[in-house]
Amino acid sequence: MSGYDRALSVFRQHPPPVNANPSIEVEYALEAVKRGTCAVGVKGRDVVVLGCEKRSALKLQDTRTTPSKICKIDKHLTLAFAGLNADARVLIDKARVEAQSHKLTLEDPASVEYITKYIAGVQQRYTQSGGVRPFGVSTLVIGFDPNDKVPKLYQTEPSGIYSAWKANAIGRSSKTVRDLLEKSYEEDMDREASVKLVIKSLLEVVQTGARNIEIAIMSPGSELELLDSETLATYVADIEAEKAAEAAKKKPRSSDQQQA
């Protein structure tokens, strides 16, 4: 076959799919993203919320020091990723250094778009340089521009593409989640509604409910807020109750909803 599998810096597994991507390498990276746990981002009127599927910890694992998939890039910037954890760590560190460096040289914090563009730029460079392989990571970048109240949500991909969204999902079963987001998204949602939508969409793909979900909320001018497990559990309970009520209403007709 092709010489690809011989190099250390090359993704393996699976037959190479064929479509518009620049290289087989990037295809493999996208495959790694698809196998990664799901991450969801939703913009509200004056908040932006990130949700992540959390791998359930092994019995002997120390959960306090196991890294999260939601990371702070700067006071006003947060990132969630899907894909290879180890690759993401490198990418996040580059973003953090760039955020500080931007502030140092321009005396102004980096905008959300700037840092997204930077991350995407790094990712694209790794699709074209010799001796390296692409980052097997897609990211959702959220935050607020300095002195601005407009929530921002961006996505980056291994190929180096970046895009802005009202709501989006990456990682495993992201298609299912995106479908739900498209159905349930409303303009100008308040904090409650935004958080609820994120949790609701995550529950589509997370089997074990509240225990395996992580939620981060950002509001203008305040620091990243991580939802504690009790609050999260009440949200989940609410949503499940709503679902049950809806299902009961629909009972006569056979269920037309399908799960992937």
């Binding site: 702070k72 890039i73 700067d74 560190d93 953090r96 250094v97 955020a99 500080q100 460096s101 502030k103 140092l104």
Partner: peptide
């Protein structure tokens, strides 16, 4: 001063 500031802030975000 700002170089030191940037590095110490970076340490903060890197390590939590």
């Amino acid at each position: 001063a700002e170089y030191i500031q940037a590095n110490i802030r970076l340490y903060g975000t890197r390590n939590g």
